[in-house]
Design a protein around this nucleic acid. Structure first.
Length: 857
RNA sequence: GGGGACAUGGCGGAAUCGGUAGACGCACCGGACUUAAAAUCCGGAGGCCGCAAGGCUGUGGGGGUUCGAGUCCCCCUGUCCCUACCA
């Protein structure tokens, strides 16, 4: 039996598509536009299964929309700056630029072998000066608009290598390369004022109905709007007008002010920095803080530590009441004012702190059904309740007490109702080489001087070395030494580069006119944006997507465009997982190193027993990866794509398995045989007039049109696995219908030609081969999407489920739309149903037309 | 620590609005073809009881609402993702 020669066919169609520029953006204003975009890859060197899934999903949408008549923009590019290129330079001696461009070349070839309907003429790489020069211009605009500024913040510092480490490079508090305990250091860095848009970024989430609910929720919580009170605790014996004479605090629980037992400030609060360094225990406290990483998880899970400064602060509502002032490692300078008041009775963290340092616990809110003898044990009371021990707030519920105390304090001029956001400004400085240079110059006399726009781009120097740790830009003999553009005296270039999230915050704009001298052509951007369908991993749910939303607003405010939201539709795909394997020594094994022999997993070469672990996200560290190249080489791109679309819904994790890809491959072969080997299932020649279609032929035809309808809806709603199931069901029925009457033959041709178009977004190469074999004109990727005939979507009879007292007792075949009396009569006439009624008449009847009949006796 | 999700046969999943649970596929079992195997084709199957007809039971665990719950509500358990310098 002749197999479908997958490799030859796929290579041939890819060549044909390229020769005919089949996927070039049409730029046809008569058609509605559709911007389909997947998250662009980091050029690591080889595509992985996550990429295959992402681009398969995107290609499905792009090809489907193209068939539906849209002018589709479906581009590809490279998120080409980043840490791995520098690691490669350190480990292998390769230049980050050379390494990156070689990787792009290799990965482009791999992506092309997937047969994606991409307009490759719009390809971009963010490490190219023609890309990042525009980003530098944006930075200068942000600087002018006050959206970029400098301040100090903490970084992870490796004391041996003398370099800044990414959170990822800190493992159990130690530097990944040196193993030395990481220290926190304060460094002056560049920030973008994303907080200027906090409220707008929050409000606009409501206008993104085509985003997953969970992503909107995560962003909402990330922005973290909270309403509360800002007030101050004056330090005992100090002048309240002195900047260090009082502590400003923000609280969302002003109702619990009468339960205050301490004030806590961040370790890097200005007041903390003003303390005498020789206070006993202070150095130890700071050392402990410095040992904690800078990540949120590290800070929040660290043991709560405090240091009593010996200072006392006066309660804002009672001049005779003072509380101690502590430094605390859980108070963050970036949130609110960097200082809190502690009410142990109403906050679990405060309670633990109070117990640890022997501070009083004054209960101020009690459950509504408790009396004033209510006390706090080892759990703070954080629910709604009634105020007590709280003077003029006594007896009020929490919400009323909040309003009352804020009103009182505003009237007295000792507090302000304030909105606070958890969102912090975006730190964009990186002390690294392989990123976009920040276009400013530091001059001893003039301060920070922007690089004049006619001198952009500030290009990275190519001649850098990675033989010693730290930023090569710092060590470069000449690069950073420039004359001040303002006064002409010797000055120093900024050696920090930009966070790589900067490049991904505007690449969708560049795609609309990738070779323009400007960042983008405003006319093109206006036509194409927003992106109609953006597809990528849920791991980007907060950061990348929020930064892009901010960037679009910031660019609009700088006059580049008039748009707030860059992504109209968002889809977040699940991860690709695979079983894990370990040998007896606990070393991870690659799937290619193991095999199943007599029902047990063993190492392929030695036969040694292998432990099979649960399926986890494919990762190099656990070796549970499958190489897409090998899969495409063995089974073809169509089978790989079809498997990616089968079974698992796109938003869920997908388990890669050999059995799954083999099943997909078998289906490719099976579909091909339908057309190539008609055998006892002959189909009509092209242009045959329609004969009478009845019986099995009509059933098949009805199924075809239901399939068209179902597949269309399934693709529209991202239920690609259901689209696949419908296609398979159609093929199953096709194979079940025998005979060679004219009607059957005619319907067979209708099914096959329609099938070619329906599967084209899933298995584009097979679809072309099928189309060609059937004698279709042009290419199947140029065919319009089929439309179901409504009359063929309804059946002669419907199956109605019959329940007695809510239990399934049988089914009835009824005419569509049969009324209650007809249905009940039919049920009573059916002995297998009637016997459950015990001869009684139904007391209540529930009919769901065409679906269900429930008789209650 | 905080935030977000998920849980249905041996496995991945389907069930559009609260209305026939298990579509479709994988694995498995039996059969055909073959010297044999592969491929292909035909048939079977949630579990328990039963020769069968059929019955009972069943969507992580516990409770509730309803004529009817995988779906809605409350509580619990487990797993995964994100947590601001990985991208």
């Amino acid at each position: 039996m002749a197999r479908y020669a997958v490799k030859e066919a796929e290579a041939r169609w890819q060549r044909v598509w390229q020769e005919r520029s089949a996927f070039q953006t049409l730029n046809d204003p008569a058609r509605p536009k559709f911007f389909a975009m997947e998250m662009f890859p980091y050029p690591s060197g080889r595509i992985h299964m996550g990429h295959v899934r992402n681009y398969t999903l995107g290609d499905m949408v792009a090809r489907f929309k193209r068939a539906q008549g849209f002018d589709v923009l479906h581009p590809m590019g490279w998120d080409a700056f980043g840490l791995p290129a520098e690691n490669a330079a350190i480990q292998r001696g390769a230049h980050p630029g050379d390494w990156t461009y070689a990787n792009i070349k290799a990965m482009r070839t791999q992506l092309m072998s997937m047969g994606l309907a991409i307009d490759w003429e719009r390809e971009i790489a963010t490490c190219h000066p023609q890309y990042y020069r525009h980003e530098q211009k944006f930075f200068l605009d942000f600087l002018k608009q006050g959206l970029a500024y400098r301040k100090t913040s903490w970084v992870n510092w490796d004391p041996v290598d003398h370099t800044v480490l990414a959170n990822e490079q800190v493992i159990d508090g130690k530097g990944w390369r040196t193993g030395a305990p990481v220290e926190r250091r304060e460094l002056a860095q560049w920030f973008l004022k994303i907080t200027a848009y906090s409220q707008d970024l929050l409000d606009a989430l409501k206008q993104l109905p085509r985003w997953p609910e969970r992503v909107r929720l995560m962003q909402e919580n990330w922005i973290g709007r909270s309403e509360g009170l800002r007030t101050r605790f004056v330090l005992e014996g100090r002048d309240p007008t002195d900047p260090l004479g009082a502590i400003d605090i923000f609280t969302t629980r002003p109702d619990t002010l009468f339960g205050a037992s301490f004030v806590a400030i961040a370790a890097n609060h200005p007041l903390a920095k003003s303390l005498p360094e020789d206070l006993p225990g202070l150095a130890e406290f700071h050392a402990a803080v410095a040992r904690t990483g800078t990540s949120e998880a590290a800070i929040e899970t660290a043991e709560k530590l405090g240091f009593d400064t010996g200072l006392r602060a006066v309660h804002p509502l009672d001049p005779s009441w003072t509380v101690p002032v502590y430094l605390a490692n859980f108070v963050l300078m970036d949130y609110g004012t960097g200082a809190i008041f502690g009410c142990p009775a109403g906050d679990q963290r405060d309670l633990e702190f109070a117990r640890k340092y022997g501070l009083p616990v004054i209960p101020v809110v009690r459950p509504a059904d408790a009396d004033d003898t209510f006390t706090i044990g080892d759990t703070a009371f954080t629910d709604d309740g009634v105020l007590f021990n709280s003077r003029f707030l006594d007896g009020l519920p929490v919400a009323a007490a909040k309003a009352r105390v804020i009103d009182y304090m505003e009237a007295a001029g000792i507090g302000t109702r304030t909105v606070n956001f958890r969102l912090r400004d975006w730190g964009v400085s990186r002390q690294r080489y392989w990123g976009c240079p920040i276009p400013v110059i530091h001059c001893a006399d003039c301060g920070i001087v922007p690089v004049p726009e006619d001198q952009l781009p500030v290009e990275l120097p190519h001649d850098v070395t990675f033989d010693q740790p730290g930023n090569p830009l710092e060590r470069h003999p000449t690069w950073k030494h420039v004359d001040c553009p303002s006064c002409g005296k010797p000055a120093r270039r900024e050696t920090d580069t930009l966070d790589t999230f900067m490049e991904s915050s505007w690449y969708f704009l560049r795609y609309t006119s990738p070779r323009d001298d400007r960042p983008f052509d405003p006319v093109e951007a206006k036509r194409w944006l927003p992106v109609d369908q953006y597809i990528g991993g849920v791991e980007h749910a907060v950061l990348h997507l929020l930064y892009s939303r901010f960037f679009t607003r910031a660019l609009s405010d700088c006059g580049y465009l008039d748009l707030a939201e860059p992504f109209d539709g968002l889809f977040t795909q699940g991860m690709v997982c695979h079983e894990t394997y370990k040998d007896a020594s606990g070393a991870w094994l690659y799937p290619t190193e193991v095999e199943k022999r007599d029902g047990a997993w063993v190492k392929r070469d030695t036969g040694e027993a292998v432990t099979v672990g649960r399926s986890e996200k494919m990762s190099k560290s656990k070796h549970n990866v499958v190489d897409p190249d090998e899969i495409i080489d063995t089974y073809g791109a169509d089978a790989a794509r079809f498997f990616m679309l089968s079974d698992s819904p796109p938003e869920r994790d997908l388990d890669w398995s050999d059995a799954g890809i083999e099943g997909a491959w078998r289906f490719v072969q099976r579909v091909w045989r339908l057309a190539d080997e008609p055998g006892n299932r002959p189909y009509a020649a092209a242009d045959t007039a329609m004969p009478e279609v009845a019986g099995a032929a009509l059933d098949l035809r009805r199924t075809l049109h239901k399939t068209i309808d179902g597949v269309t809806q399934a693709i529209d709603s991202f239920h690609f696995n259901k689209a696949v199931a419908l296609v398979r069901t159609l093929v199953n029925l096709y194979e079940d219908v025998g005979g060679d009457e004219a009607g059957v033959q005619w319907v067979r041709r209708e099914v096959l030609t329609t099938l070619a178009v329906l599967i084209a977004p899933m298995m584009p190469h097979l679809a072309e081969s099928l189309w060609e074999r059937l004698g279709g004109s042009d290419l199947v990727c140029q065919q319009p999407w089929p439309i179901a005939t409504p009359a063929l979507l309804v059946d002669d009879t419907v199956t109605v489920a019959v329940q007695v007292n809510g239990k399934m007792r049988g089914t009835l075949a009824l005419a569509p739309g049969a009324d209650q009396d007809t249905a009940v009569a039919a049920a009573l006439a059916d002995a297998s149903i009637a016997r459950w009624l015990d001869g009684k008449a139904p007391r209540k009847v529930i009919l769901v037309p065409n679906r269900l009949l429930n008789l209650v006796v």
